[in-house]
Structure formats: structure tokens, C-alpha cells
Design a protein around this nucleic acid. Structure first.
Lengths: 185, 185
DNA sequence: GGGTAGTGATTGATCAATAAATAAATTAAA
DNA sequence: TTTAATTTATTTATTGATCAATCACTACCC
């Protein structure tokens, strides 16, 4: 049922040292997205990696820190994706949408993770998501301004709102909730 | 610290029978909004009502059912608020926004509850929030159509997107995230 | 023989949920 | 109209599970 993720073939005698931290994060994203932060157990994450449950705590101080790390990773991927975006003013929004849509296809679990995090009341997690939202907003604004857009503030806000509705639509499994703009130009 | 909510003054000999179910729901909204569904304990809810913890389970089958009830209550309040909305096509959106903004002021905890619920992976809760979203979307659409609006589908979608961003802005305590439309017409 | 990578066994808290008992109120009987 | 019976409201005490986190140990490599 739960497939291990660390299926690494050592080439002859050369031992491939996989990064345990990365492996754990990779598994954690999946487990957290499926069961939610609180229902997910460190044992499930460990099982998916193929290590013992206590070993998680050799690498992450506690469960919260593990979740924070997965969340930060998710936000970093978003900002990294947006960093390269560049287009003339009349195309920049569609370009940004395109980039984000691809991200949602390739890393749906990270999107789910973020929607989860919106509702978590633990302060450490709230801080991460606040910072993440700030970073994305600022970055998108910078992109829109650079493209020479008319009303960047309003456009950024609209972009964030529709992006959020996209996330929620996906997390809830309600495709009918997706923003209607996106249907056709 | 945690103030009891059932401070009811019986008028002379006339005994005012307060509805325990309602009292519990009232307390639950507060406790859930503050700590989140999973961290909130039934003991905290009970303490706030001024009853014993096990008594909660005489009225609600389990914790999940209690949460579902609070969530349904929150959604009902939203739909009830929108039910009466009516205005000409060029004012209907602002009217809907006005109504929703008042709701956010009077019942912020119910909004927080909904944002929380977006990320919860338990199937019973997901169903409630899916239905709630469907109900609101449909109702807003009906209002917009009745007002004789040009592109109701797109407008409803935009309304939902900005509404969600509002909710998130509130839940995260990030006023700067609020939709920029709302600043001025 | 010390460092790195890892495991098995265990514990200590936390809570939802149950069960058994009690008090209070309401109805019925005498 | 007092009292007995019965139902309703509520509590105390307890349990049973679940898990994050710790500790003490092993195996391997340089």
C-alpha cells in the first residue's frame, strides 16, 4: 500500500548517499497532504521513507519543524517558479497563470499543504504562511510592475484572489469552483 | 480567564431554560476558532459553557459531529444573510459585499472556522464545506441573475475569489492581503 | 576507538469517549 | 397535598488509544 520512496540502486560498489532530509520531506508532503498535519503521524512518514520512526527526530527537532520545513519548501518552489516570469504588459497575467497552473499540476500536494496551513493556529506555522504570502504577493507585484502594467496593485490582488480560489477548488476536489476567467481569454 | 457564557438571569420565579445545544455551539465556535479543530479540546468547550466535559457527548455523538454542527451553523448564517439581498444590476455587487463585510464583523470566528475547515481532510467535514460552498455560489448567482447582471457566471466567480481572499486575510491577521477593489469604488 | 547512521523498546501526555452514580425536576398515586 | 415513582439533567471517575519524543543500544566505517 504505502510505497517506499527511497528505491535507490547503488551502481556496483559505489554507494549513492541519498539525502535523508530530502527523502523525509518528500514523504512528508505526501502524508501531510493526504491526512492533514494533525492526523498524519511521523510513523507514516518514516514508513514511506523506509526508516524507523525515531530517526525522523534525529533530523527534525519535532513534528512541527518537519511540517514547517515542508511548507517552506512549497513556498520556495512557488517563488522560484515566478522568478523567471517576464512578458509584455498585455500578456503578463496569462503568463503568470500559465506558470502557476503548471506548478499545480506538477506539485498538487504542496498546494494542498498550503491550504491546510491557512487554518492551522500554531504560531510557528502561521508565521511561515504569512511570510510566504507576503513573498509571493511582493514578487508578483514586482513582475507586474516590471511588465509596465496599468494598475499593478489591483491586478496583483485579483491574481492572488483567483489563485487562492484555484487552490481551494483543488483541495476540496471541486473543479466547478475554479475561476471562470480561466475558461477562455 | 475563560469566561462562562451561560450567565442567564432567571426573572423572579420564572426559570429561563437555556438551550444547552445552542450554548455548546456558541462556545465551540470560539474554542475551535482560537485553537483549531484538532488542538481544541472538548474540555475547553465544556469549561466555557460551565458544564462537565462528558456532558458534551450526551448532546453530540462525538467531537467531529460537534464541529460539523458549528460549521453548518456558520454556513447557514451566510446563506441567510444573502437571502434578502436585492438591488439593481449596477449596485448588486456592492450590496453583496456590504452584507458580507457586516457578517465578517459580527461573526469573525465563524469565518475563521471555515478557513480552517478548508484544509481538514476528514471526509464528513469535507462534505459539509463542499455543500456550503455550492450553496453560497448558487445563491449568489441567483441574486446576480435576478438583478439582471451582464455576466453573472464570471461575476460570481470573482465575488467568491475576493470573498475567500478576505477570509484568509482575516484568518491570518494580514489586513494588507485584503482585495484592493474594496478600497474605493 | 570515535564518529556517523540507524534501530527497538519504551514512556509520558493528552484526550475522546464510556460507564456508573447522583441530583433535580416532573408526574402519578394515595 | 404529601409522597412515591419516573424521567431528565448532569457529574465523577475511569479507560483505552494514540503518538510524539527519548533513551539506550548496535553496526559499520575510517
Amino acid at each position: 500500500m504505502t510505497k517506499e520512496l527511497n528505491s535507490v540502486q547503488p551502481k556496483s560498489d559505489e554507494v549513492i548517499v541519498v539525502n535523508r532530509r530530502e527523502q523525509i520531506l518528500e514523504a512528508a508532503v505526501i502524508v501531510f497532504a493526504e491526512h492533514g498535519y494533525f492526523r498524519a503521524t511521523t510513523a507514516q512518514v518514516a514508513e514511506k521513507v523506509g526508516i524507523s520512526q525515531p530517526y525522523i527526530f534525529k533530523i527534525f527537532k519535532n513534528k512541527e519543524e518537519l511540517f514547517v520545513a515542508t511548507l517552506e519548501r512549497a513556498f520556495e518552489r512557488i517563488t522560484r517558479s515566478f522568478k523567471g516570469v517576464n512578458a509584455p504588459a498585455d500578456q503578463i497575467v496569462w503568463e503568470a497563470i500559465r506558470v502557476y497552473e503548471r506548478l499545480m499540476e506538477t506539485h498538487p500536494n504542496e498546494i494542498i499543504l498550503q491550504v491546510q496551513a491557512l487554518g492551522i493556529r500554531d504560531e510557528a506555522i502561521r508565521q511561515v504562511i504569512r511570510q510566504g504570502m507576503r513573498d509571493i504577493t511582493e514578487l508578483v507585484k514586482q513582475i507586474f510592475v516590471t511588465a509596465g502594467m496599468e494598475h499593478p496593485e489591483v491586478e496583483v490582488s485579483t491574481f492572488m484572489a483567483n489563485g487562492m480560489l484555484c487552490n481551494i477548488s483543488m483541495t476540496l476536489g471541486m473543479p466547478e469552483l475554479k475561476p471562470k476567467h480561466l475558461d477562455r481569454g
